[in-house]
């Protein structure tokens, strides 16, 4: 497992390597290291608990971007059956940084839409690093309206560094696509549950984040700007990432405190990538519980619940 770890995990990884070493030796020379191994196990667990209970916001940001972290399609595969991916915005293209389609979730058909990153080099560039073009957002709106037409709840999974800042994206109206998506989502007559599964990157994430409920994975982040962008603009320095991510208050716990999200979804110790199947199962139960709130509400009540939720956002004197 030690292929991919973050620097603050190094002591943990070192200890785990030592355990492996001892285990190997244990059988060979007839020496029994069982008690040492047990001791080290306890130590590594303590260390992990300790490390992960006091992650800095920047460490958490890097965990949220972890290369092995489950992505939208992983969750879709683990949480649903019968997923049929639907493609295209009917205007220009497919917008492959966003995936979506009908799926069976806890016995009912739903529309699930997610921002998709790639794991290897090839897929990462195919998915444009999870940074959608306007056609991705327009496809998402089309699918959400399709869900509304057939009275299916909508689940959106947010995980993007942000909407793509490129020439084609600007030419095809990136801002218009994002703006329209938010406006259309606000009035969908079916329940919408949104989950930040990794990186909630500014407007690019919010474009799919206007829901009745906003859930956030324990190690996900959600922010108005990336710590990199914030540091570059306000600190005029690329290495003030700790300070910028601290100041932005982008962790799930901060945002729950502000009332900007509704619920934190627990992850296994060490992060979602340590056990994607278990994580998906925790999330599945959380989404089901949240969907149940809206089962008996009328379409009007669902819309006004969502409108009220966003109408009340903001603090001033």
């Amino acid at each position: 497992m030690a292929v991919n770890y973050l620097d603050f995990e190094e002591p943990i990884v070192d200890l785990e390597a030592k355990i492996d070493e001892l285990r190997e030796l244990s059988g060979k020379d007839g020496v029994d290291f069982t008690s040492e191994i047990k001791k080290l196990h306890r130590k590594v667990n303590r260390l992990r608990k300790d490390t992960f209970s006091k992650l800095t916001p920047w460490q958490r940001t890097r965990l949220a971007r972890h290369q092995l972290r489950p992505y939208a399609l992983d969750y879709i595969n683990h949480m649903t059956t019968g997923f049929v991916e639907l493609h295209g915005d009917r205007l220009f293209g497919d917008g492959v940084s966003i995936v979506g389609g009908f799926a069976r979730f806890e016995g009912q058909s739903v529309m699930v839409i997610g921002q998709q990153k790639g794991r290897d080099l090839k897929e990462r560039s195919f998915r444009n690093f999870g940074m959608a073009h306007p056609e991705g957002y327009r496809k998402a709106v089309r699918l959400m309206k399709l869900a509304e037409k057939f009275n299916r709840p909508i689940i959106t999974l947010l995980d993007t560094p942000g909407a793509y800042p490129g020439v084609g994206a600007e030419e095809r109206g990136q801002s218009e696509a994002i703006a329209r998506s938010m406006m259309e989502m606000a009035v969908l007559r079916v329940p919408v549950i949104c989950v930040v599964i990794g990186e909630g990157g500014s407007g690019g994430a919010l474009a799919l984040g206007v829901g009745n409920r906003m859930l956030m994975m324990e190690n996900a982040v959600y922010s108005v700007i990336t710590p990199e962008g914030c540091a570059a603009i306000l600190w005029k320095s690329c290495d003030k990432l700790e300070e910028a991510s601290e100041a932005l208050r982008l962790t799930a716990r901060d945002l729950l405190g502000f009332g900007l999200i509704d619920e934190i979804v627990k992850e296994p110790l060490g992060g979602a990538h340590r056990d994607p199947v278990a994580t998906a199962s925790i999330l599945r139960r959380a989404i089901r519980r949240n969907l149940e709130h809206f089962r008996d509400l009328s379409p009007e009540a669902i819309v006004s619940h969502r409108e009220k939720k966003f109408r009340e956002m903001g603090v001033f004197a």
Partner: peptide, 26 residues
């Protein structure tokens, strides 16, 4: 654009205002 110093509160103004346009338009 959105004001960084108010963090996610600023971002949410995008959704709030967009939804208000929708109500006016309707």
């Amino acid at each position: 654009g959105a004001r960084m110093q108010e963090g996610l509160f600023s971002l949410m103004q995008m959704a709030k205002t967009a939804a208000a346009v929708g109500r006016l338009s309707k």
